[in-house]
């Protein structure tokens, strides 16, 4: 550095500049793994881009894909309907079940690890495995569930043929699978609640039930919001379990938005339209996250 201007060491930089400099690696990384892919996705969504015809020049179609999806594609709306229904059933469902599990796991048993291990297992199981296992559970001919029903003197139930039952079993499995994630976040939250708050409340005259409603629940709200944000986003992206359990059947009644995107891009190789659908899903997730963040911020004020 032989320039005439005095050499500046890092210490001479203003705090703001230094801060920016230190954030730079994170910003670059974020650009690489978030901004670029999303930007690229948006770009592709504006073209008629088919990988099944790789030598054809993709034609610019502007917002045509979006307009088609929103106004003219009943399969898109069916998939959105199924996805929304799965979200509004399984997210609160998993919250309630997860809260119950977390409360059980937080009980002062002598040995807590069996409960906690049981909690961890569904979470550690890959989604597709869970889907395949339950597909066998609910299998018409060989399934455990129908076997039990028959032994109890009931008839066999068409779990995979009746669309309502198929939808119900999928939701059940998603709740089973995701409630352990909920429970783990809520358990961490439960453990941060000081024990003496309960003692104070008991002395103040609270019953165990009142302790739960007046202390546990309000104190868990931050953990619940975090759990809900994560769970809602993954619920919007539901793919593996219905894919493994029903493949979208019967008659497409359990096909989610993510499955439709997968089908469009991977099976049909229609990257242009698939990208537009993926952008729409991204916007929905973004919207859901924004709402939750607003709720948290509103609570802080």
């Amino acid at each position: 550095m032989s320039s005439k201007s005095p050499r500046r060491s890092i210490g001479d930089l203003s705090e703001g500049t230094l801060g920016l400099l230190m954030l730079l690696p994170a910003i670059l990384l974020l650009c690489l793994i978030v901004v670029y892919p999303v930007g690229r996705l948006m770009y592709i969504s504006l073209f008629d881009w088919r990988m099944s015809l790789p030598n054809a020049v993709p034609a610019f179609v502007g917002l045509e894909h979006y307009i088609y999806a929103l106004t003219d594609d009943p399969k898109f709306w069916d998939a959105v309907y199924n996805t929304v229904l799965i979200t509004i059933i399984t997210v609160p469902g998993a919250l309630v079940v997860g809260l119950g599990l977390a409360l059980v796991a937080n009980l002062p048993f002598k040995h807590r690890w069996p409960t906690r291990l049981a909690l961890l297992l569904p979470w550690a199981l890959p989604l597709v495995f869970a889907g395949l296992i339950f597909r066998w559970f609910f299998n018409y001919d060989y399934g455990l569930v129908n076997d039990i029903l028959q032994r109890l003197g009931f008839g066999k139930v068409l779990w995979g043929t009746d669309p309502n039952l198929a939808f119900f079993t999928i939701c059940l499995v998603i709740i089973w699978k995701s409630s352990s994630f909920m429970a783990m976040i809520l358990l961490a939250g439960l453990q941060t609640i000081p024990r003496n708050l309960y003692e104070a409340a008991k002395v103040d005259g609270a019953t165990s039930w009142q302790c739960f409603w007046k202390i546990t629940l309000p104190m868990l709200i931050p953990s619940m919001v975090v759990a809900l944000v994560f769970r809602t986003i993954t619920a919007i992206q539901t793919f593996d379990i219905p894919y493994a359990m029903t493949g979208g059947g019967p008659g497409g009644t359990t096909e989610t938005l993510a499955m439709y995107i997968h089908k469009t891009t991977i099976d049909f190789l229609d990257f242009g339209y698939g990208s537009a659908l993926a952008m729409l899903m991204f916007l929905v997730s973004l919207g859901a996250t924004t709402i939750y963040l607003r709720i948290i911020q509103g609570d802080k004020e």
Binding site: T161, D162, P163, G249, P250, G251, G252, T253
Partner: peptide
Amino acid sequence: NGVIAGTK
């Protein structure tokens, strides 16, 4: 599949 299942 939809017809066989009776959903359509």
